[in-house]
Amino acid sequence: MLKYTLRRVASLIITLFLIATVTFFLMNAVPGDPFALDRDTPQVIRDSLDQRYGLDKPVLERYVIYMGRLIKGDLGMSMKFKGQTVIDKVTTTMPVSIKVGLGGVILGVFIGVIFGIIAALNNGKTFDFIVIIAAIVGVSIPNFVFATLFQRLFGVTLGILPIFGYKGFLYLILPIFAAAMQNIAFYARMLRSSMLDVMNQDYIMTAQSKGLTRRSVIFRHTLRNSMLPLVTSFGPMLAGVLTGNFVIEKIFGIPGIGNAMIMAIQGSDYMMIMGLTIVFSFISVVMYFMVDILYGIVDPRIRIS
């Protein structure tokens, strides 16, 4: 187990290093720089800014300097907003992003699982068909479409919920539902098919042959086994809690980490792009790692080797 953990940590460091390197050079390959403004800036000011932020040096040298700082844990300062450190930005934007992301996941799993179960239990009947069709539609339509639809319906037509900004819980309801839509569709489909699969297993017939009622068979034997594939999807799901809602944050004007990332990219805020990318990657990799450990706890048959 210790060996396994060490190996995972080593691979985590290599992954982060590669991501940082690739991002650094790609970002520099994109036209424009932090100080390229629409209005004319005197060359002197530009030069002095470049010098101050080290942008006058060749790319390779800047790369070495950046990586050197990164190893010390210094993610640097924003190039656009004075006095704003990357770490500050992460810590101020993360909480609201987690609220939207986690809310979307929890709501999505909850509603999706219930729909999936009811559909499986009514296999071949009307409700089943409605769920299948709705799930296909839900998976196919991108969440920003739902986001704008919700804004129109609940914000403009019905006028019951705020649609922009973040000044309290009410402002999170629409973003969370928009973020949940694809999860609902995804988990409804997954649960339905895994439940139908489990219902055809031999051990379900064993349970029926013991004279258990339909309810006992479902609750004691079918459900738990149908939930197992759910665990497998935790990894991508948890990693997506923070990184999955860029567009939704942007549409609803939620000051989250995704929104910060989009702003950084739009403004070529090099330090911010690098820093946020590394934080995102770190979170994703750590989440996957945690889920791998979790598997072994949830399903005793899975052994980490």
């Binding site: 031999d202 017939m205 064993t206």
Partner: peptide, 18 residues
């Protein structure tokens, strides 16, 4: 089913709840 008639199935690998 509960009391009087019980069954044993073909494949013991799949007939118990894992």
């Amino acid at each position: 089913r509960a009391r009087d008639i019980r069954m044993i199935f073909q494949d013991p690998m799949t007939s118990l709840n894992p």
